[in-house]
């Protein structure tokens, strides 16, 4: 009963607060969540995604130049179109099968984002693996009236494409 009441008030009041945020607060933070189920062993999938030094499972990436696989390590990835992105490793949790990184610098043509953080979590699903890849970020242009290519819609679209293609390719590699 208590919990049901809380849910009612929570939903009700959150709408109230959100309405302020959306119209007022400069760019709104965006999120993208993509999932894929991979027919492979959990350890095999984890082995690939936990290796921060190698992001080749993302098909848009042609090379990864990294200084390690520890928290704080940096990697510079080069994409097919020649754009670069620098990322730092923020979390690596073997037990929870979770890895998280951040973008330090990005080419806006590839990923038009600010304050981007991505997390990948793996869950065992009875012999298969559910991989959830999520990212929180702001659009490419932080001021008001962004150009079309750096607005919320396009920034979100680019992140979605980036993440989806990586997950699909991960599935392809592991199910070969």
């Amino acid at each position: 009963m208590i919990v049901r009441n809380l849910k009612f008030y929570a939903c009700f009041l959150f709408i109230f607060f959100i309405s302020f945020e959306i119209i007022s607060h400069g760019p709104s933070r965006q999120k993208v969540v993509e999932k894929v189920v991979i027919n492979a062993e959990l350890t095999k999938v984890w082995e690939i995604v936990s290796n921060f030094s190698d992001f080749s499972w993302n098909p848009l990436v042609v090379s990864t130049d990294s200084n390690g696989n520890e928290i704080g390590s940096l990697r510079k990835i080069k994409s097919k179109n020649g754009s670069n992105i620098s990322q730092s490793l923020e979390k690596l949790n073997e037990e929870k099968k979770m890895i998280s990184w951040r973008i330090k610098e990005t080419d806006q043509k590839l990923l038009p984002v600010n304050s981007y953080q991505a997390t990948l979590i793996l869950k065992d699903q009875g012999g298969k693996v559910e991989a959830t890849y999520k990212a929180g970020f702001y659009r490419g242009f932080m001021g008001n009236d962004p150009p079309d290519e750096l607005n919320d819609e396009n920034s979100k679209k680019k992140v979605k494409e980036f993440i989806s293609s990586a997950l699909q390719n991960l599935k392809t590699i592991l199910e070969k």
Binding site: V3, L6, K7, Y9, C11, L13, F14, I15
Partner: peptide, 18 residues
């Protein structure tokens, strides 16, 4: 104790629990 699914993107920085 519990995780309750709510609407999209819940945010608040004030008092929101009665």
């Amino acid at each position: 104790i519990k995780k309750i699914e709510v609407c999209e993107g819940p945010r608040s920085f004030g008092k929101f629990v009665i």
